[in-house]
Write a protein that binds this DNA or RNA. Sequence first.
DNA 1: GTCTATAGGTTGATAGAC
DNA 2: GTCTATCAACCTATAGAC
Lengths: 218, 218
Amino acid sequence: MEAPNPVSENSDSKSSRTRQRILKAAAGIFRQQGYTSASLREIAESAGMQAGSLYYHFDSKEDLAEAVMDEGVAAARRSAEQALAALGGGEDALSAIEAAFRGHLAYLLEESDFAVATLRMLHQTPEAIRKRHTRKQRQFGQFYAGLFKQARRDGLIRDDFDLSALRMLLLGALNWSPEWFDEGRLTAEQLVHQLSMMMRNGLMPPRLRVVPGAATAR
Amino acid sequence: MEAPNPVSENSDSKSSRTRQRILKAAAGIFRQQGYTSASLREIAESAGMQAGSLYYHFDSKEDLAEAVMDEGVAAARRSAEQALAALGGGEDALSAIEAAFRGHLAYLLEESDFAVATLRMLHQTPEAIRKRHTRKQRQFGQFYAGLFKQARRDGLIRDDFDLSALRMLLLGALNWSPEWFDEGRLTAEQLVHQLSMMMRNGLMPPRLRVVPGAATAR
DNA sequence: GTCTATAGGTTGATAGAC
DNA sequence: GTCTATCAACCTATAGAC
């Protein structure tokens, strides 16, 4: 059984279901325009109300943006963790990373408003918001860091890789994908499969791979 | 011998060297704040003049932004092509890609104002600018596409990779790196080395790699 | 809870003196 | 070429009616 209402934190439906409608509208507008360009008038219109009415539900534009960003990271993380949990636990550590990537990227490319808005707002929001948000995003990063550490413990990532750099580079490939995905021809799952093939065996055909030490016996 | 003045297109120094000063200031401000938040007053101040005076050199804020973005892609491309040319031409096609990455990333992380401002402004600029810019960026993409095609012709990239997706994923890793580089401990060159190792042989130690077909003889 | 009306501030851009 | 001064437009946020 899953959480009944993904976007909400407090009580469920009665009083503030409008709040969710506003958040969804804001995510869409913020995604298109970023934080600064987006006006509360536009957001209100998209939510079917007047600008002034927003202030009954949120204290300020900053508050609204932070709520969208909170949901952006939380939902991406939920999606990654669910895909990981669906594996059952019998797989190797690289498969775990790939599963998390699959869930993460599927959310980013398919239900993207919150997460993409979050990525695009990062450098425009006031510092107070950004500081808090960076902390939350780093917690998500630690989730991935744990998976990479496990893969190294299991001998699946060689010692000459810097785990932190590797993780940031790969997550960067995911985070940037909303910028070009519309024009691509592959699904989110197929994109992760491309990454997965590269992570396991590199780009080259087997006969060309460099095998530094012993490679014949065993 | 290289181009004497990287940032200029027209005649050299006499009349419009102030233009370059303004462009540099604009790149810095746009990088911090994005397109919409940045005010012409701030840019003017950073360039040591008054806001009204900018209009002697540029027709509008849009114009100024487009000039910064043009230089952003042009400089990144120059840096990638120079690093590639420095190889001498005797290397294999994967080394060519890695060299271009090295030049590209060094510019992005070390002289970054123009390029990073460009990346961050993309979704805030008026559509007319964005449309023209996308065309220029796609030309840069074609430069990389040529390198990947050559690597495939040389048998260095297996047939089960989608060259376009692979290129976009790897360039995404580069483009996202300014978001986290400040906190990292590796140089641009070392980061490319991480990518390079993964591209050639994957993450796993040799003994664990899957060798699907014949692998013993030859 | 949502509306209308508006205060108060900032912005891009223009005009004209120097 | 650069300055000062200013306009018109837009924004966030608040106040008070309903």
